Amino acid sequence: MIRRRVVVSGRVQGVFFRDSCRREALAAGVTGWVRNLPDGTVEAAFEGAPEAVERMVKWTRNGPPDAVVYDTTVSDEPLAGDDAFTVRPTPH
């Protein structure tokens, strides 16, 4: 099991990025979360089998059809033990 945090920049809000990400994560069998950030980026954490997590990281480099991804920053994190994949609210 591994965990990666991803921050995606570009035209990634208002294009169903979070909901599409949630559906892809469920299909891949990973847990974690996704949320919009106030600066216009999208942040996500993916936890699961290495190949499933890498599938999700790769997906974020393009996102859903209407997204335009400029950059994706990926970092390793310790396992958190999430039991589902959720869409989180934007922090203030």
Rank of each mutant, 00 (worst) to 15 (best):
N62K: 07
T60M: 15
V69I: 01
N62P: 00
V87A: 04
V69Y: 09
V6I: 15
P89W: 02
L79G: 14
V53I: 12
L26M: 07
I2S: 04
V42W: 01
V12H: 13
A25N: 03
M1H: 09
P64G: 14
M56D: 05
P64L: 15
C21E: 08
G32R: 05
V6Y: 09
A80D: 00
D83H: 13
W59G: 07
M1S: 14
D76F: 01
H92L: 15
P91L: 02
D83I: 01
A45T: 03
R35L: 10
P38H: 11
V15R: 04
G10K: 15
T60C: 15
N36M: 09
W33E: 01
R5P: 10
C21V: 14
G10V: 05
Y70W: 12
L79T: 10
S9V: 05
D71C: 06
R5D: 02
A27W: 02
Q13N: 03
A84H: 12
F17V: 08
T90D: 07
R88I: 03
A44C: 13
V8W: 10
A67L: 07
F16T: 09
D83N: 09
D39M: 10
A67F: 12
P65Y: 15
R11Y: 06
V30R: 11
R35G: 06
T41I: 00
L79P: 05
G10S: 11
R18M: 06
F85K: 07
K58T: 07
G32C: 01
A27C: 10
A27S: 11
